[in-house]
Design a protein around this nucleic acid. Sequence first.
DNA 1: CGGTCATTTGAGCGGAGTCAAATTGAGTGG
DNA 2: CCACTCAATTTGACTCCGCTCAAATGACCG
Lengths: 214, 214
Amino acid sequence: MTTMNTIARPVSSSALPTVSSIFPFNSSAPLTTFDADNEIYAPGQKARGLYRIEYGAVRLYHMLSDGRRQVIAFCLAGETFGFEATPTHSFFAEAMTSTGVRTYHFTANGKDQAELLGLALRGMLSAQKHILVIGRQTAVERVAGFIVDIAERQGGLEHFDLPMSRLDIADYLGLTIETVSRVFAKLRQSGLIKLRSIRCVEINDMSALRSLCA
Amino acid sequence: MTTMNTIARPVSSSALPTVSSIFPFNSSAPLTTFDADNEIYAPGQKARGLYRIEYGAVRLYHMLSDGRRQVIAFCLAGETFGFEATPTHSFFAEAMTSTGVRTYHFTANGKDQAELLGLALRGMLSAQKHILVIGRQTAVERVAGFIVDIAERQGGLEHFDLPMSRLDIADYLGLTIETVSRVFAKLRQSGLIKLRSIRCVEINDMSALRSLCA
DNA sequence: CGGTCATTTGAGCGGAGTCAAATTGAGTGG
DNA sequence: CCACTCAATTTGACTCCGCTCAAATGACCG
C-alpha cells in the first residue's frame, strides 16, 4: 500500500518541497482516507496535528469571499502538511485524488521540536519563493517552473502524471485555466514537452525548460 | 483580504506579523548599525543567527537575473528576521533607513527552540497569505491591504510614516511604481486617505479601506 | 537658485483575462 | 464495442487592467 502514486524522494537541497515536507518520523498512526475533492480541514477548525500523506495528493488553498481561489501548495505522497501558527487552521485542505493520510502529534520533546522547526522553515522558504514566481514571473515562466518542480518532486523521471487539474494549476500559479492551457500548448508546439495524455507530461528538453524559468 | 498580516506589537495568537516577528527574548548582543540601502546579508552567505531590529526598517528580497525584484517582507522595529531553512541565506536583507540590529543565536535549549518554532510558523503563514494577495487581488486591493497592514504594525495610529519608497511598495505588491502611485492618487481622491507628505499617510476612512481589501 | 532624484501624470500598448464555442476524453449503459 | 453524456480542456475573438515609455511636477539639498 506504500506505492500507489509512486514517488522516490531524494531530497536534494535545491529541490525543496512545498509547505509540506518529508516527514522524518517513524510511526504508525491510524490511516484516514479521503475521496477526491473531499475536505480534510477548513479554516477556523481546530488544528489537531500534522498529516503525512501515505498515498494520493492534497491541495491547500485560500478562498476570497467572491470565489477567487489561491492554491498555496500541492502536497504529494510522502510529504507532510497541517502546520499552523495559530490554534486553528488558516486554509482549506482537500484531497485531490483518493488519498490516505496519517495524523501525528508533536510532543515537547526536543527532537520532535527540532524536526518540526525544520519543516516549518522549509515551508516558509517554499512559500517565499512562490511569492517571487507569482509576483514577478510571466505566464510561460510560471508554467515552465511548475512542470520542472513537479517533475523533480515525482522523482525526476522523464514522464509523470499531474495529480491536479488545469484549474488547480491555474489557481496555484495565479493564472486562469485558459492561460495555463495556452502555455501548455505553446510548450508542446515548441517541442519542449509532450502530452501523452491530458494528465501525463513527458519532458523532451529539460534544459530548455529550465532556461525558461528565468 | 482583510488581514494581510497585521498587528500591533503584542503578539496575540490571532495576530500575525510578517516574516519577521516580535522577538521574545531578553538579551543584549552588540548593536550593529547600517545606513540606508546598505546590505545586511546576501543570498549564499552563511547564516549566522537572527537579527532583531532595534530601530529602522529592513527589506528582504529576491532578485531575478534580469533585474526583476520581489520584496518578500518589510521588517520594522521590534521585529526579527534572518530565519533560514538552509545553512546559507536565501535572500537579500537591506536596511531601508538608518537601522540598528542585534544578532542572536539560538541554543538547543527547549525554550529557545519553541520560541523559534513559533516565529517560523508565523513567518510561514505570513508568506502564505501574501501569496493570495499577489496571486488573486487587484492593484487597488493590494495597496489598500498594504496601507491597512502598515498602519496596524505601526501601532494603529491615524497617521504614520511609510518607511519605504514607492518602488519598494511596488516590488512588494508585485506591481509597478506607476501603478502604486496611481492607486494612492485614487484613494486620496476618493477621500479614504490623505497624504500629509509623500511618505506620511493619514487614514480618513479605515472601514472603507478594509472593505476594499476584498 | 539650480541640480538631482523620487514621484506623479499622461498616452498608448500588450499580456493575460473574459466570454463563448469547439473539441477531447472519461465514464456509462445498451 | 459503440453510442451517448457530461465535464474538462482547448481554441478563438475580443477586452481591459496594469505595464511601458515619456514628460511634468515636486521635494530636498548644496
